[in-house]
Design a protein around this nucleic acid. Structure first.
Lengths: 352, 352
DNA sequence: GATTAGCACTCATTCGAGTCGAGTGCTAAC
DNA sequence: GTTAGCACTCGACTCGAATGAGTGCTAATC
């Protein structure tokens, strides 16, 4: 399930060459590849029979397998992993970086991200996913209660990255302006500058005690504000180009594409992927992640691969962008396009 | 393109019976229905030959057609329209109403609507769509500028129905609290109680004049507020159960299902439908609409039908809910389930 | 004049047989 | 260790026959 680095030592040079050839060929054609093809299209001067023996070995070691007796081989998850870790040519990645995805700068981060997803999907022919920045580590910057009507208050909460949360609070009886003023002061002095996840139950009860007077109403207001702060329902995930999944016969025929799109709709599985990617990038080094087939927990996703990257635009605006494709996706291109997009995002938000 | 009422007089009783039988049968099986089937399963005691003659007439009149020579008939759009307008049994609709969709009341309307869509999709096996309430007719209830940081203001706008809009405004130089206070007063006295669409350019320039002092900064702030008010980007449309479209072979094989799901992703076409439905219900009578095939402008949708209803929960919270299915959808069930859902929505928001 | 039985015809679908070709594994020779 | 050769497997494709649901038309019947 988890990603394991494959030691390069297990395979001798010739096996590596053959494995590479099998994978490259399969990525292009999508058809099982046979010994004859390999013996022709590699620089190794070997007959198909020799290749067959080697391939038989590779199969035993779990890098490739046959969909049915007496057909060519296709890579296993382990094979793909080896390819992604050791075989991908850096050159191609460079070339791809020059690609011109042009993100227009928009007012809202959300709009930019949606657009980014659209571009990714259009350029790669895979499905793109983008998560809105997670906010629970962000620090509270501004908090204000206002009376909107006699019996309703509006709480506005702004955190780093200018992400805004709102909450309407219905009160049982009217609260006078004076009390609101005091509440605002109280909340701000105690909560300002704290990260959302630091605002826990203990702190809330403390606040309530401090509030002192007419506990009932005030405490219900405080509760509501706390609710709003902690609500993490805001991990939104957008997808774009979901139907691109239908372009790949190996997913289409078996009806797996439908499952995958369903998974997209439910978001939960996507959340897992996003979170995994965020966790892996916590250390700070911003690298791309690749998850292949079973490396993802979600059963519906076991027939695809995902390339993810974490964007970090400062001010706590940190989230994940991903490309979902079939396992035989063009990893070079996907990673190249992703890299290019990330660079652009960085630039846009540095100039700001 | 537009819906035309079909006069019932065009068809004699026998033709009506036969047409009904054809449609009912086709709705069930999804296969072209032949004369023999009809002669067996109707109370008319007629031979298949007679039915054939009648069917030939019906074809000439445009109610049914043959997918290829010498196969059974299937209904045309006109046929479906006639069925929906005149033939659907009210009884079944009653029965369906008893169905128990149970919407949990949630804090936010948005959450309730999303849930409603999910329920609809799950119960009907079609795709559900829900539009967030349109707000441009709603009246402004509360407007407030606050200073969040030295160079940034936050505008909070609340309209009827407690729909909240936010906008961060970057200012070139710091604005002092006093000015903000004045601005708030100015904006509120002039704009409060107006509907969003009443706040037009003329009004804005007037406001700017009134503002008087340091026009540059203040007017840019006013502009930003006006922008935020008018931004109608907030017509969100959610879909649920998109992949249900794949359950219907007539859409699946031809690849039309993919087109349709693509259309869902782009929202624009859906917007048209939503707007059409809203317009039609403007008069106030809250009825369900049915759009069949070509009655919708969108080309990708010409192979499906949509049942829409307008929800109106008071306070200007008005939007559209729809069910999208193949043309041979079970209109009775769809409309029944929809009705039931609308009733529940009403109830939830009346008790509130 | 409406209804029906009968017949010739059409056309999509299914099925099996046959062929093809890509591929393998194994063995024996180099 | 490498390779040529051969028997074998198995999916994909083609083709024609059989099937069967359905039609339109005509002539007989009520």
């Amino acid at each position: 399930m988890a990603k394991e680095a494959v030691k390069i030592t297990e395979l001798d040079e010739r096996k590596v060459k053959i494995l590479t050839a099998v994978i490259r060929n399969y990525l292009e054609t999508g058809e099982p590849v046979g010994s004859r093809t390999i013996s022709k299209y590699t620089d190794l001067q070997l007959s198909s029979a020799t290749i067959r023996n080697e391939m038989s070995d590779l199969e035993e070691m779990g890098y490739i397998f046959q969909p049915h007796t007496s057909s060519g081989r296709i890579p296993t998850d382990k094979g793909y992993r080896f390819y992604v870790d050791n075989l991908m040519s850096e050159k191609e990645r460079e070339i791809q970086e020059k690609e011109d995805l042009i993100i227009e700068k928009a007012d809202k981060l959300e709009a930019v991200l949606k657009q980014a997803a659209k571009l990714l999907a259009a350029n790669t022919n895979y499905t793109a996913l983008v998560s809105s920045p997670e906010t629970h580590r962000n620090k509270l910057k501004f908090l204000q209660l206002s009376k909107v009507e006699k019996d309703s208050l509006l709480a506005v909460i702004v955190v780093e990255g200018n992400i805004i949360k709102n909450k309407m609070i219905q009160t049982e009886e009217e609260i006078d302006e004076d009390t609101i003023l005091k509440l605002n002061l109280l909340l701000n002095t105690h909560l300002n500058g704290l990260s959302l996840e630091e605002i826990n139950l203990g702190l809330i009860t403390l606040l309530k005690e401090r509030a002192g007077m007419h506990t009932e109403i005030v405490s219900s207001v405080i509760d509501a504000v706390a609710d709003a702060i902690r609500a993490d329902e805001d991990l939104e995930i957008y997808t774009s180009g979901a139907t691109n999944m239908f372009k790949y016969p190996e997913l289409m025929d078996s009806g797996k594409a439908t499952d995958i799109i369903n998974t997209f709709e439910n978001k939960e599985e996507l959340e897992k992927i996003v979170n995994a990617s965020l966790a892996e990038n916590n250390a700070g080094k911003n690298e791309m992640q690749v998850y292949i087939g079973k490396e993802m927990a979600s059963p519906a996703m076991q027939d695809c691969s995902v390339v993810t990257a974490t964007y970090d635009l400062g001010d706590g605006m940190r989230g994940t962008i991903g490309i979902v494709g079939p396992k035989r996706m063009d990893y070079e291109k996907a990673m190249g396009t992703m890299q290019s997009l990330m660079n652009q995002l960085d630039e846009i938000y540095k100039k700001k």
